[in-house]
């Protein structure tokens, strides 16, 4: 009877476990193994030990890509700041606020290709953004948002921010709802002004949400690819060439699958370090109940 029950249980689990095994667990384990092999699909894999990691060390495109990916992390604090402000703002019980929230959520459900194409047109040298800025007298000559190597990366980051805002806003709204109303009222009775209340009461209580949203957006920032692919193709002069893009190029552009796996392993390591650091940082600030 017990055996039968076990069999039935595993029968139910089988499809999920098989698929997870093939497409989730296997790649994690063998991705690391693959990074020790030279593999181009056409000829059989060749074991090369750590040679590919040594090659990375002297590969200038690796350093360019790593540098850009780390710069891309700047989007994380900006995104948290904006979405917290936004969440506090749309929390007020006004009429039609639901539609307001929905508006911010639109970019989240829109395809990244549509978003990328849209902003590629808007940010064109003769596009709408330059037109508006010129008319407002804020600039005197059109800005080359996507074709100036000093600006392009930040322009793409802005689009990431624009698309992600609504998602993180919802996380923070959930976080805010979980805060018992009593805390803020008590602080108000103690004579704390609205800003002081926000800083000393609300923000500390939001820590679990900040930790979660920060980690999620950091992971997303490190694997940014689609925005770049659609908007700039990694250029100009590799100024938007990220780690994930380089991995994609090596794997599917040049068929250096082993080398690409080595890049993936480095990227994964950076991600893990960052997640742990994030966790530590917020924990030290008195995050006791998480």
């Amino acid at each position: 009877m017990a055996l039968r029950r076990t069999l039935v249980a595993y029968f139910f689990l089988l499809p999920a476990l098989a698929l997870l095994g093939v497409f989730t667990f296997y790649p994690v384990v063998f991705g690391t193994v693959l990074s020790l092999f030279e593999y181009d699909v056409i000829s059989p894999p060749r074991y090369v030990g750590l040679a590919q990691f040594r090659a990375l060390w002297t590969d200038r495109y690796f350093w360019i890509a790593l540098d850009n990916s780390l710069k891309y992390l700047l989007v994380v604090p900006a995104l948290q700041f904006c979405s917290i402000v936004l969440a506090l703002w749309v929390r007020r019980p006004l009429r039609g606020i639901g539609w307001f929230r929905a508006a911010f959520y639109l970019p989240v459900v829109t395809s990244i290709v549509v978003v990328g194409l849209l902003w590629r047109w808007l940010l064109d040298e003769s596009g709408l953004v330059n037109y508006v800025l010129l008319r407002a007298g804020l600039i005197h000559a059109p800005i080359h948002w996507l074709t100036n190597p000093d600006i392009a990366l930040y322009a793409v980051m802005f689009v990431t921010l624009w698309k992600g805002l609504g998602y993180y806003m919802v996380i923070y709204l959930a976080g805010l709802e979980a805060i018992p109303a009593g805390y803020e009222e008590a602080a108000a009775l103690d004579g704390a002004g609205p800003l002081a209340r926000l800083w000393h009461v609300t923000i500390p209580l939001l820590r679990p949400s900040i930790l979660l949203a920060g980690t999620l957006s950091a992971i997303a920032a490190l694997r940014v690819f689609e925005e770049v692919y659609v908007m700039t193709g990694g250029g100009p002069v590799y100024s938007t060439y990220t780690m994930f893009y380089y991995m994609f190029d090596q794997a599917f552009g040049s068929l250096h699958l082993g080398y690409a796996a080595a890049l993936g392993v480095v990227l994964a390591a950076v991600t893990v370090v960052l997640a742990v650091a994030n966790f530590r940082l917020l924990r030290q600030g008195g995050l006791t109940y998480y």
Binding site: V22, F23, T24, Y26, P27, V28, F30, G31, T32, L34, S35, V41, R223, F244, M247, F248, A251, F252, L257, A260, A261, G264, V265, L267, A268, T271, V272
Partner: peptide, 15 residues
């Protein structure tokens, strides 16, 4: 688990 290498390995598996 970091899934970054999944892209490559899943491609090989499907191949």
């Amino acid at each position: 688990l970091p899934q970054h290498v999944g892209l490559i390995l899943n491609f090989v598996t499907l191949m």
